[in-house]
Amino acid sequence: MTNVDRFVIVVGFDGSKQSHAALEWAIEECQFRDAELRIVTVWDKAPMSWYPALLETAAGEIVAEESPQQQAEQISAAAAQAADAVNVVTRTVQNDSAASAILAAAQEADLVVIGARGHGGFAGLHIGSVSSQVANHCPCPVLVVRPKAAAQAR
């Protein structure tokens, strides 16, 4: 990094509670460093593997469930809106693993911030598979944001 290059922070964001905590930490750090925040959101459903479910609303209307791509784009947009006080670049990645997408974005980053766990199925683990892969293979420093002790006890 040269003196003119802006510090770049990459944050993996999947909408989970812990990714929100990682995003909050990354936003504060971006404000402190006048850094650029790059938000990475991934979805990996093949086009023919998802069929919309029809849902009935409380008003009795029938609507189609949003596609994984629409959900990922909404999650990414919500993260960007939360980070409106800093310079934000969002990236919604299709058909890739979350770890691969974050590691690819990390090639141009000075720091990666991720939550300890996302939406994975093994809630008892202290660190999820994506966080573990990123921490073990990232070319730059990684900060894994864990929940506060009081939140863990609940």
Rank of each mutant, 00 (worst) to 15 (best):
I114W: 02
S76K: 02
D5Q: 13
A78K: 14
A22K: 03
W43Y: 11
P52H: 08
Q74S: 15
A22M: 13
F13H: 03
I9E: 01
A46Y: 07
D84G: 11
D84K: 09
T2M: 06
F7S: 05
I127L: 15
L111I: 14
A80C: 09
V113P: 06
L54Q: 13
Q18K: 08
I127N: 08
P68N: 08
N95M: 15
A105D: 03
P147H: 03
Q81M: 06
W50Y: 11
A78R: 07
S67M: 06
S97W: 12
V113C: 08
D14Y: 08
G115E: 00
E65A: 12
Q81N: 11
G120E: 13
E36D: 15
A79W: 00
V63S: 06
A64V: 11
A35P: 04
D110A: 12
A82H: 13
A82G: 06
R117Y: 10
A22N: 04
S97Y: 11
G60P: 01
A22V: 05
V42E: 07
S97P: 08
Y51E: 14
V112T: 03
M1P: 11
Q133M: 15
D5R: 15
A22F: 09
Q70S: 12
Q81F: 00
E28K: 13
R117W: 04
D110C: 10
T90G: 00
E56D: 02
S67D: 03
F13V: 01
A83T: 00
V130T: 13
V93N: 05
K17S: 14
E66M: 11
G12T: 04
D96E: 15
W50R: 02
E108H: 08
E66H: 13
I62K: 11
A153K: 08
Q74K: 15
K45Q: 11
A21R: 15
Q18Y: 07
A85C: 13
A151P: 00
S129W: 10
R146C: 05
H119V: 06
H126N: 13
G12P: 07
Q107L: 10
A98T: 02
F122G: 07
E24V: 12
L23H: 02
Q81W: 01
L143R: 10
F32W: 10
L23K: 01
S49C: 05
V40G: 07
A58I: 10
